[in-house]
Design a protein around this nucleic acid. Structure first.
Lengths: 132, 132
DNA sequence: TTTACTGCAAAGCATTTGCAGGGCG
DNA sequence: CGCCCTGCAAATGCTTTGCAGTAAA
């Protein structure tokens, strides 16, 4: 196996652990630049790609096309407004059983799953009724 | 309410119903161009945006940053390989109960959810062990 | 006539890639 | 000494936006 990580990968992993939240590549880039030694943006992307393939980091695409990266252990899901993009965290998750089933039935090594609900939040619902 | 659809929106909706599968904006653009009268790519995007906000169409972002659009009624989920990008459909879905709960507890109008599993498919697992 | 939709082409942006320099083994 | 990692900058590709023409009410 090739679980051998580069220094950049380690640094990003450490930062993700320290902050314990989902960040975009650009944010990681800035964060690394300020907290520790700088790192090229391309390297950030390359490291994230490797960590993702390794199964320790996961990505979630948000409105705007940006990806947010976080540790796989985090099992937080989201409720997202299609209109304003606001995301509310959802703690509950009924997926684990199914995940176990899939793991058994398909020949597929599952690292993580993403579950996201989409709709319109209360404030945006009000805005949709102009005259009403 | 403003459930008044433009002609373009209707045409895209009709096409999605007819094909009954998830397509990218570009694919819809090409498809429309060949099957019926042509339509500008920008219009395709604008129409999809409107249909999404209306809750009849949903989007799923795939590797490469492209979005695939489909009717909301489809409740197909996916098992995606992080390495080669292959997606296997997953029919089962244990999320509806939670969705009902969320609908009740949060003031949030939920249109649909996306559930996606990520990992490495069998063929790609083999490729990872070069010498072994 | 007035408003809203459409097309085209020009941005915008996150991400990827080529290439040369540099560090580590 | 050789290979992999890095950085920079250019390139890619999807999506968005400005603006002017056009169809609909």
């Amino acid at each position: 196996m090739k679980a051998q990580r580069t220094r950049s990968q380690e640094r990003i992993l450490k930062l993700l652990r320290r902050l314990n939240l989902a960040l975009s590549a650009q944010e990681l880039y800035v964060e690394l630049r300020s907290r520790e030694q700088a790192m090229g943006l391309a390297t950030v992307y390359r490291a994230l790609e490797a960590l993702k393939l390794e199964g320790v980091v996961q990505a979630r695409v948000v409105a705007g096309g940006e990806s947010l990266y976080s540790l796989v252990q985090e099992d937080k899901h989201h409720l997202t407004c299609l209109q304003c993009g606001t995301s509310i965290p959802v703690d509950d998750c009924p997926v684990h059983e199914l995940e176990a089933q899939l793991r058994a039935s398909k020949r597929f090594e599952i690292y993580y799953h993403t579950l996201e609900f989409f709709g319109v939040c209360a404030p945006c619902q009000l805005q949709q009724q102009p005259g009403a």
